[in-house]
Computed example of a mutant assay.
Amino acid sequence: MTKTKPVSYLVGASIAVALQCAPAFATSVYSSDEAAVKAVTERFAADLARGDLKAISLLYTDDAKLLPPNEEAISGRPAILAYFEKTLQPALVGGARFSHYEIYGDGDGATSISELEVLDGKGRVAERGRQTIVLLRQGGEWKIHRDMWSDDSPAHASH
């Protein structure tokens, strides 16, 4: 497992949760706030590129959960920040790019599914995967409430 795997795990955990919640939120194919929902993920990528993990943690609700692959859920903003400080070290992770968005929802809830590329410190693609996030509108802002991601790297068989 590389040091950047936790990023792709974070992204993958988001996907499964959103797929479970998508029927409840999907009143239309795309959210009326599609640009605002997408902007949350783009802020995540910009903050990660700057190594500002505190700013990333503020994109989450107070009672948010990360659902990393093959790990226990990480609950609450302080625990999420601690997880990011351990797994998203700027020396190892240079940023992320998100693309091919599907955004569902209306009102105060939305689900965003996107493809993810995790970049190393030299800007090269280190991992690819998918992210699913469930967002809630709080105080007029979209915040990540559940975050799950996957990694497209081949699974390693244990012998």
Rank of each mutant, 00 (worst) to 15 (best):
E102H: 14
Y104C: 10
I113R: 13
K54E: 12
C21V: 12
K3C: 05
P68K: 03
P69K: 15
S28I: 00
P68S: 11
A79V: 00
E115P: 00
A35T: 08
S153W: 12
A64R: 02
M1R: 07
I113Q: 07
A49H: 07
A18I: 06
T2V: 07
L53G: 02
S8E: 07
S14F: 09
T41M: 13
V134Q: 07
S99L: 07
D33E: 10
D108R: 01
V17T: 13
L67A: 12
D147G: 03
M1A: 11
L19R: 12
V37F: 05
E71M: 13
G121V: 14
D33I: 01
S75H: 10
A82Q: 08
E127F: 06
R77L: 01
E34G: 05
P154W: 05
G95I: 06
H145S: 06
A96M: 09
P154L: 06
I74M: 03
E117H: 01
L66A: 08
K3D: 13
S31P: 00
G123H: 07
D33H: 01
V37G: 00
R128T: 15
A157M: 12
C21K: 10
A96E: 11
G129P: 02
A55S: 08
E71F: 02
L10N: 14
P69L: 14
G51A: 10
E71P: 01
R77D: 03
D47G: 03
T132Y: 12
V29S: 12
D147F: 08
V29Q: 13
Y60M: 10
S99M: 09
G129F: 04
P6N: 00
W142V: 03
I74L: 03
G109F: 06
M1V: 04
E102Q: 15
T2W: 08
P78I: 02
G123S: 00
T132M: 14
M148I: 08
L10H: 07
A16S: 11
L92F: 15
F98H: 12
F44D: 04
E127N: 13
M148R: 11
K122G: 07
F84Y: 15
I103D: 10
S112I: 15
D106C: 09
Y9S: 14
A155F: 11
